[in-house]
Amino acid sequence: MDVPGLLESAGLLVPEAVATEDDLTVRDVWDHLIHDEWDTAIDLLQELGEARPLPPTFWEALAGAAEQLRMERSAAWCWWRCAEMRKGVIRADLTLKPAGETRRTLPMPGAGILRPMWNIGHHSPTGGRSVSIAALWVEGRPFLEPGGSATVRLLPLTPAHWQHLAPGRQITMHEDRTVAGTATIVEIHPPVAFVSSPA
Score class of each variant (00 low, 15 high):
29 V>I: 04
30 W>L: 10
31 D>M: 11
31 D>R: 14
31 D>Y: 07
32 H>Y: 10
33 L>F: 12
34 I>K: 13
35 H>V: 09
36 D>V: 08
36 D>I: 07
37 E>W: 05
41 A>T: 02
41 A>G: 08
41 A>P: 00
43 D>N: 05
44 L>T: 01
46 Q>P: 00
46 Q>H: 12
47 E>T: 04
47 E>A: 10
48 L>I: 14
48 L>H: 12
48 L>G: 12
49 G>Q: 15
52 R>H: 14
52 R>N: 09
52 R>M: 11
53 P>D: 03
54 L>M: 06
54 L>K: 09
55 P>F: 07
55 P>E: 07
58 F>M: 07
58 F>N: 11
59 W>Y: 13
59 W>I: 03
60 E>Y: 07
60 E>C: 03
62 L>S: 01
63 A>C: 04
64 G>R: 02
66 A>K: 01
67 E>Y: 01
68 Q>H: 03
69 L>I: 00
70 R>K: 11
70 R>T: 09
73 R>G: 01
74 S>A: 13
75 A>T: 08
79 W>P: 02
81 R>N: 01
82 C>Y: 01
82 C>V: 00
83 A>N: 02
83 A>V: 00
84 E>L: 06
85 M>H: 02
85 M>E: 10
85 M>V: 00
88 G>Y: 12
91 R>N: 07
92 A>V: 12
93 D>R: 14
95 T>Y: 12
95 T>W: 11
95 T>S: 15
96 L>I: 09
97 K>R: 15
97 K>Y: 10
98 P>M: 13
98 P>Q: 05
98 P>L: 04
100 G>T: 12
101 E>T: 06
101 E>F: 14
102 T>H: 05
103 R>Y: 08
104 R>M: 15
105 T>G: 08
106 L>R: 14
106 L>Q: 13
107 P>F: 02
108 M>N: 05
108 M>V: 15
108 M>A: 10
109 P>C: 04
109 P>M: 04
111 A>W: 11
111 A>L: 11
112 G>W: 02
112 G>L: 05
112 G>M: 07
113 I>F: 08
114 L>A: 10
114 L>Q: 07
115 R>D: 06
116 P>N: 13
116 P>M: 12
117 M>F: 06
118 W>Q: 06
119 N>E: 10
120 I>S: 09
120 I>M: 05
120 I>Y: 06
121 G>I: 08
121 G>N: 04
122 H>N: 01
122 H>T: 09
123 H>P: 00
124 S>V: 00
124 S>R: 15
126 T>S: 14
127 G>H: 08
128 G>F: 06
129 R>Q: 12
130 S>C: 05
131 V>D: 10
131 V>F: 14
133 I>D: 07
136 L>T: 10
137 W>D: 03
137 W>C: 01
138 V>N: 04
138 V>H: 02
139 E>A: 07
140 G>D: 09
141 R>V: 04
142 P>E: 07
144 L>I: 03
144 L>Q: 02
145 E>Q: 13
145 E>S: 13
146 P>T: 13
146 P>E: 07
146 P>D: 06
146 P>W: 11
146 P>Y: 09
147 G>K: 13
147 G>C: 09
148 G>V: 03
148 G>F: 01
148 G>D: 03
149 S>I: 00
149 S>C: 06
149 S>Y: 02
150 A>N: 13
150 A>R: 05
152 V>E: 03
153 R>K: 12
153 R>M: 11
153 R>Q: 14
153 R>W: 05
154 L>M: 15
155 L>F: 03
155 L>G: 08
156 P>Q: 10
